[in-house]
Simulated assay, not measured.
Amino acid sequence: MSTSAEPRPQTFDALPTVTRSFMPYIAPMFAYVALGSLESYLPSPGWYPAAYAAKAAIVAAIMWYYRSTWNDLRPAPGVLDVLLAVATGLVVIALWIGLDGRYPDLPFMGGARKAFDPDVLGPAGKAAFIAVRLLGLVLLVPVFEELFWRSFLIRWLIDQDFWKVPIGRVTWISALVCSAFFALAHPEWLPALLTGLLWAGLLAYTKSVSACVISHVVANLALGIYVIATKAWKFW
């Protein structure tokens, strides 16, 4: 019998530093996209509210596990930066709604977003679904998307040792490429492209990922209010 110790299974702490650094940025985003891609396989549209609630819960749990990444959100932006972030968020939602129907759908991206009408759930079910949907739209998505797009990817495009790149450093190439990928991640590709460029500019000016999160929150909250008020469910 050999007396040599058997190799220990690789744990998270044993992973290379670069892998450990990447995971908090990509794990919530990957989980949200991967779980979202499974929604097309639901037996019927009626399963969507439960599927979305499960997705939101899983992503929230991953975000809580990797909450130390939220150091990227410090320090808090100043008053003028917050005002600029709010204004940018309102411009974003104006583009999102104003450009609707003015650009072609791209079939290779899945075409237009498929709408789910919560009126089929009845009053109580509709209220519960809208509450959960707003929670994901306003509190979860802005945080993990900005950590991925404007904290991780835009710096990684400058230097793969991205943690060495100061937050807020943006080049034309990193802004354009990051915004292009952001556009490809949304059926509303044209407003998404313009939004990516606006938030890259906001990041470069404020040097604050938190300012981008605030702007994203404002845009998503405004979109949610618009969707509920007009029943334009196709936007979410």
Rank of each mutant, 00 (worst) to 15 (best):
G125D: 00
A112K: 15
A76P: 11
L80Y: 13
V120S: 12
I97A: 12
A76C: 07
I93K: 10
A76M: 06
V79A: 09
K126F: 02
V91K: 04
R102H: 14
L99W: 13
A131N: 02
K126A: 04
F116I: 04
G111I: 08
G89L: 08
V82Q: 11
A127H: 10
D100M: 14
A131R: 10
G110I: 02
L99P: 15
V91H: 05
G125T: 09
P75K: 00
G122F: 12
D105E: 06
G122H: 02
A85E: 05
D105C: 06
D81K: 01
M109H: 07
Y103H: 07
L83A: 13
V82L: 10
R133V: 14
L83D: 15
D72I: 07
R113A: 09
V79Q: 11
L84T: 15
G89C: 09
D119Y: 07
L73N: 01
V120G: 05
I93V: 15
A76S: 09
A127S: 07
L73D: 00
G111M: 04
A115L: 04
P107F: 01
V132F: 11
G78M: 06
I97F: 15
M109C: 07
F116G: 03
V132Y: 11
L73S: 04
A128M: 09
A85C: 09
P77M: 02
V92R: 05
G110D: 06
G89R: 00
A87D: 05
P77W: 08
D100K: 15
G98S: 12
A124T: 14
L83V: 14
V91P: 03
Y103L: 09
G101R: 09
F129A: 05
V86H: 02
G111W: 10
G125N: 03
L80K: 15
F116K: 07
L90Q: 06
P118N: 05
L95E: 10
P104K: 05
V92S: 10
L121D: 11
P118K: 04
L84Q: 13
R102A: 14
W96F: 15
L80W: 13
G125P: 01
V82E: 13
D105S: 07
A128W: 13
A85K: 08
L95N: 09
F116L: 03
L73W: 01
I93Y: 05
